[in-house]
């Protein structure tokens, strides 16, 4: 119990998030009850959320470094489109069969996504381009490649086996959701328990001190953005499978939401702070609200308003927590100075 209390205090943001999520869950249970809490709704939520959730994790990774990845949705669409080109190519399908085609398409999408992310990392780590500017540039570029190669039209006509993936379930749980959970657990594990994850927190906290402590900043940054790119690639595949087509401009609203979810999860936009596991909670929280909004028949625009207010409110909450923290630390320090003086 004492331990729990201590850990709650040490991560106030996460604690607030936990309570906030529980409060929302209870509130919705009372007001809406089975309208939200039913098996079918949970299943449809699981279908909808996977592609976005993967992106949110990518965004969270970039923000842990004190950066941001504006190109993540563009990268996902580009990967999806490249994947779609392979899948809809009748010649490949005819000569290799469904299984091999899908395998190639998936590999292509993952490679495209990872290379796209790696290029972000290269610009940021090796050329010292500001993350906002670098990913703004690649966002434009990736969207450009996508539009140029498709003429802005959707690419569709996939083998049945692939689109089945988008609707398949294992004892009620969508396959896409399982893929997401596996990736999420890997990312959370890597960032929480490995030396590499630790390094990322260090760089996000103070990149100069990290460099002076023999951390290879540039390599770490490239890897993180490549990871974000890989996740974008996965998301691209998920979108293609679920929607049965790939198109530029799909999921435009994901950008803002991914940042919102990361901030909500307590990941500081200036880097080095926050837990990746918080993203799971933040996702649960926003998704359940999302379906409550649907029950209440909110327009997409009102939803946007609410997201914006939540983002701002969360920034303020974090700011206040930081302020209280500093106050407490000042006291501790004065105590130590007094001891030193003795």
């Amino acid at each position: 119990m004492k331990k729990l209390k201590a850990s709650m205090r040490s991560d106030l943001t996460l604690t607030i998030l936990v309570f906030f999520t529980i409060a929302i869950l209870v509130f919705l249970a009372i007001t809406l009850g089975p309208k939200v809490y039913n098996g079918r709704n949970f299943q449809s939520m699981a279908f909808q959320i996977s592609e976005f959730a993967v992106l949110a994790f990518g965004m969270g990774l970039a923000m842990l470094l004190g950066g941001i990845d504006l190109s993540i949705v563009a990268n996902a669409n580009l990967s999806g489109i490249m994947c779609a080109f392979v899948l809809s190519n009748a010649a490949i399908v005819a000569s290799l069969g469904d299984g091999a085609t899908i395998a190639i398409a998936v590999i292509v999408a993952l490679v495209v996504g990872t290379v796209g992310g790696l290029f972000n990392g290269f610009l940021i780590a090796k050329c010292s381009v500001h993350p906002i500017v670098a990913t703004l540039g690649t966002m434009t570029l990736y969207n450009g490649i996508s539009t140029a190669s498709t003429g802005g039209n959707g690419v569709s006509g996939f083998p049945k086996a692939f689109t089945n993936l988008g609707v398949a379930t294992v004892s009620g749980v969508p396959v896409l959701f399982i893929i997401f959970m596996v990736l999420a657990i890997i990312v959370i594990f890597v960032m929480t328990y490995t030396g590499f994850g630790k390094k990322i927190y260090m760089i996000g906290e103070n990149h100069t001190a990290a460099r002076f402590s023999a951390i290879n900043n540039e390599k770490c940054i490239m890897i993180i953005y490549a990871m974000a790119g890989f996740l974008a690639g996965v998301s691209g595949i998920m979108i293609s499978a679920r929607v049965n087509s790939s198109k530029v401009g799909y999921g435009d609203t994901y950008q803002l939401q991914a940042i919102l979810v990361a901030v909500l999860a307590g990941i500081s936009p200036s880097g080095g702070k926050g837990k990746m596991a918080g993203i799971l909670l933040a996702l649960a929280c926003t998704q359940i609200l999302q379906s409550a909004f649907t029950v209440w028949q909110f327009t997409p625009y009102s939803k946007k308003l609410i997201w914006g207010v939540m983002l701002l409110a969360m920034l303020f909450v974090n700011k206040i927590i930081d302020y209280l923290d500093t106050q407490k630390q000042k006291q501790l320090l004065d105590l130590q100075l007094a001891q030193d003086a003795e």
Partner: peptide, 26 residues
């Protein structure tokens, strides 16, 4: 120093490799 990190993080930052096992787990 990493001022916003704790003692454990600060003393192990330069030798994270030695603090991990073969697969990189801390």
């Amino acid at each position: 120093l990493l001022l916003n990190k704790d003692m454990t993080d600060n003393v192990s930052v330069a030798i994270l490799k030695q603090m991990t096992n073969a697969v990189g787990i801390l």
